[in-house]
C-alpha cells in the first residue's frame, strides 16, 4: 500500500502497523535493557497507567474538576448498568447498528461499482473527475439536513448519510487500487490471449481486493460516525440520540456511556471485517 495514505483511518492503520513492528523489534533487541520491554512488564505498566487514569478521574471528579462536567467512571458504569438492566439501550443500539450496517453495505457496493466503471473507462474518469472531486471535498455531514427533509427523521436519513460517506471512501479506494495495479499483470494476461472480461475477472477484481478491504475496514468507523452524527443532528432514537439528549440534560455520564457503547460497536465490527480480510487475503502474509 502507498506510504502516504489519503485518509486518516489509513494513516492510523499504517501508524499502528509501524508501532507494533517497532515494538516487536525493540522487544527483541533490547529486552535486557528494561523490564518494560518484556511483555509481562509492559502489560503491567499498561494496566497500571489505565488504572491510574481511572483512579485520577474517579477521585478528581468533584475535587479537581466539577462532577457535572466530567462525570466519573463509577457514574458511567452505573449508567451503563442501568441502561442494560432496564433493556432500554437495545432499541437504541439496534437503531444505530442497523443504520450503520445498511448504509455501509449500500454505500460500499455502489462505491466499488462506480469505481470500477470509472476506472475501466479512462474517458469517463477524466470527464467526471472534477464533479467527483467537488462532491468528495464537501463535508458529508452537511448533507444530513437534506436527508432529514427528504427522508424524515427516521432511520432512512441516517442510512443515506452513512451510505454517502462510505460511498466516496470505497469509490476512491477502488480507483486508487485500479491505478496502482501492476500493469504487467494485465499485459501478461492479454498476451496469453485473455479477453477484456477475463482480465477484469482474473486480474482486476482480485487485484484491487486489498484496496477494497482497506476501504471496508476504515469504512466501519466512518459508518458508525456518520450514523451517530445523523442521530445527533435529528432523531428520536439511536446512540447519537442518547448522547444528544444526555447533553441536553447536562448529564455527562450519559454522554460518556453513549460514546463508550459506540466505541465497542465500532471496534467489534472492525474486528469482524479484519478477520474477513485476513481470510480472503490469506495469500498476503
Amino acid at each position: 500500500m502507498s506510504a502516504q495514505p489519503r485518509d486518516p483511518g489509513a494513516a492510523a492503520a499504517v501508524a499502528v502497523a509501524v508501532m507494533s513492528a517497532a515494538a516487536s523489534r525493540t522487544g527483541a533487541s533490547e529486552s535486557a535493557r528494561s523490564v518494560f520491554l518484556h511483555p509481562v512488564g509492559r502489560a503491567a505498566a499498561q494496566i497500571a497507567i489505565v488504572l491510574a487514569m481511572l483512579v485520577l478521574w474517579q477521585f478528581g471528579s468533584g475535587t479537581l474538576f466539577p462532577r457535572v462536567w466530567v462525570s466519573s467512571p463509577s457514574a458511567i458504569f452505573a449508567r451503563l448498568v442501568q441502561w442494560f438492566s432496564s433493556g432500554s439501550i437495545w432499541g437504541h443500539m439496534a437503531a444505530t447498528v442497523s443504520a450503520a450496517a445498511i448504509g455501509y453495505v449500500l454505500g460500499a457496493a455502489a462505491g466499488v461499482a462506480t469505481g470500477l466503471l470509472l476506472g475501466l473507462s479512462r474517458k469517463a474518469e477524466q470527464i467526471l473527475s472534477p464533479f467527483v472531486i467537488a462532491l468528495y471535498s464537501l463535508p458529508k455531514v452537511a448533507l444530513a439536513p437534506f436527508f432529514v427533509i427528504f427522508l424524515g427523521i427516521g432511520i432512512e436519513s441516517k442510512i443515506a448519510l452513512v451510505a454517502v460517506t462510505v460511498y466516496f471512501l470505497l469509490l476512491y479506494n477502488t480507483l486508487d487500487g485500479l491505478r496502482d495495479l501492476d500493469r504487467g499483470w494485465a499485459d501478461a494476461y492479454r498476451l496469453m490471449g485473455a479477453n477484456d472480461r477475463e482480465i477484469v475477472r482474473n486480474v482486476m477484481l482480485p487485484g484491487i481486493m486489498p484496496w477494497i478491504f482497506s476501504g471496508l475496514r476504515i469504512g466501519v468507523r466512518y459508518a458508525f460516525t456518520a450514523a451517530v452524527l445523523g442521530e445527533l443532528l435529528a432523531g428520536n432514537q439511536g446512540i447519537g440520540y442518547l448522547i444528544e439528549s444526555s447533553a441536553g440534560q447536562f448529564n455527562s455520564s450519559g454522554i460518556f456511556a453513549g460514546v463508550f457503547i459506540l466505541v465497542v460497536c465500532s471496534v467489534v465490527a472492525t474486528e469482524v471485517i479484519s478477520r474477513a480480510e485476513k481470510f480472503v487475503l490469506h495469500w498476503r502474509n
Binding site: 501492476d182 504487467g184 499483470w185 494476461y189 496469453m192 479477453n195 477475463e198 482474473n202 487485484g207 495469500w283
Partner: peptide, 23 residues
C-alpha cells in the same frame, strides 16, 4: 519483472493460461 499473480498459488499461476477461453 515477473507478472505472477500474488493471490494465486504456484499451480494456479502455472495453469492460468489454460483457464482462458482461447486455450
Amino acid at each position: 519483472k515477473d507478472t505472477l499473480l500474488p493471490w494465486r498459488n504456484v499451480a494456479d499461476n502455472i495453469g492460468a493460461p489454460l483457464e482462458l477461453a482461447c486455450h
